[in-house]
Design a protein around this nucleic acid. Sequence first.
DNA 1: CGGGACATTGATTAAGATCAATTTAAGTGG
DNA 2: CCACTTAAATTGATCTTAATCAATGTCCCG
Lengths: 261, 261
Amino acid sequence: MKTSDLPADMLQKPKAVIPPRISNVSHPAFSCAAASAGACTVADLCEGSFTRALEHLSDQAVVQRSIKRGGALYRSGDPLVNLYLLRAGSVKVRMVTYGGAEQITAFPMTGELLGLDGIETGIHACDAIALEDSLVCTLPFAPLMAYCANDAKALLRLNRLIAREASDYRRLLFVLAGTNSEERVASFLLETSKQLAARGYSSADFILKMTRDDIAKHLGMKQETVSRVLARLQTAHILDVSRRHLKIRDAVKLAVIACRH
Amino acid sequence: MKTSDLPADMLQKPKAVIPPRISNVSHPAFSCAAASAGACTVADLCEGSFTRALEHLSDQAVVQRSIKRGGALYRSGDPLVNLYLLRAGSVKVRMVTYGGAEQITAFPMTGELLGLDGIETGIHACDAIALEDSLVCTLPFAPLMAYCANDAKALLRLNRLIAREASDYRRLLFVLAGTNSEERVASFLLETSKQLAARGYSSADFILKMTRDDIAKHLGMKQETVSRVLARLQTAHILDVSRRHLKIRDAVKLAVIACRH
DNA sequence: CGGGACATTGATTAAGATCAATTTAAGTGG
DNA sequence: CCACTTAAATTGATCTTAATCAATGTCCCG
């Protein structure tokens, strides 16, 4: 599984649904920068049996799909048909109550697997909304399962991917239940920074793809509080904030704040 | 899959690790009251293929294990060897930070499947601590997976069970991120009430197995606040509270409170 | 019938929500 | 290209909620 040199920002000018250029070796689902940088959620699946599973699938149905900024990859209530591998762009995954309250459960980035929230019931429990024009590979769920049944390693890996979602929520649970607003924002920023670094981007200088309100709805706080915390961290020379553009000036102090409780 | 008439409270005087009495039809893993009442997490697995999987397994390794109140079924850091079906008693599942902060992720009751937090990495991420003397059936994980590979329906069911954990956390996330202390306690009580009802117990008059502090550590608040909220609900004639003994006097009002946000 | 864990209750403080007013940036269409 | 429109972000003043600190009460369990 070597990587292609497909640019990470190929979506700046999204081009319809064009079949991806396939480099000499790699499967379209894995010709992403994230995989090469080791940040792909499914990266450890890239070698060996899971790759074969996907190649098997690709004979019939692995296609790409582009989603415009603000558009939905899937919505709560949709039947689970596919899982999706995020190839470019970024997404928010959210639940919405009848009352309109919104909880953002995750901000997946390139290389991550989307759609697992549909597995429990066969119906998606969340909305997946693009934060910018994005591109995914479609992984039909039923054939994927069928393949895994014939491949013990792939099966274990699939199960681990599903279990990973619970792990992620468990961590977020901890943050929401046990920390104050400053710690929440700090750990969110560190997490984002780490994820970007794993994808080959700067860990200290980046653009947030989501609004303050999105961050607030992820961390269980209000947008005003997010703003104020960022302002405070700026004053303390820990961050440079200019709207969505963020520079981490003192990652150590930020980590200390994140781990205080 | 009919049920046996094994008493639900058989653990009041726990008897060593004695092989279960097997009724004429049922598998030991399913001779629990919860399964008969339809409250078993794995209940929909009880019929058909999954039962065969477990019968297959029982030839080799399905054993029961008892845990004393306060004892650990498994601990964070333990390798995943078994999943466990809770047959009697109750449990808290928790994470603990280096700093000693504790987050209780769930209070499983009879019929629920334990140990899924070990699947992602092969190492358990949580502690499972008995809130009272309890009894579990041991389900060796590796053979279970091996069996599922041969049975497409069982495989899907296993995956759904794993995904269910994420669903539960997602719901809790919502509560922690979006509601005040009164709403949190109200939804916790309603949830508990519902689960008990599903197991054939009274939904309006029950004994909590956990301390106020456990509830607090589940809901992201302080024990004093839990106490005060309960007192307020008592004053409002919605509850009758006497330490762990709880009566729900007005389930409708309680539900209104739980859904306010 | 102690002793210790658990629970309740009160007084005070601090953190974050809420309400409200600007400011800033980014599109959009003439 | 500029004026106009609008979504997003910031900032301030005030209010509410729950945390904190502290004392007391009570029920099991050995």
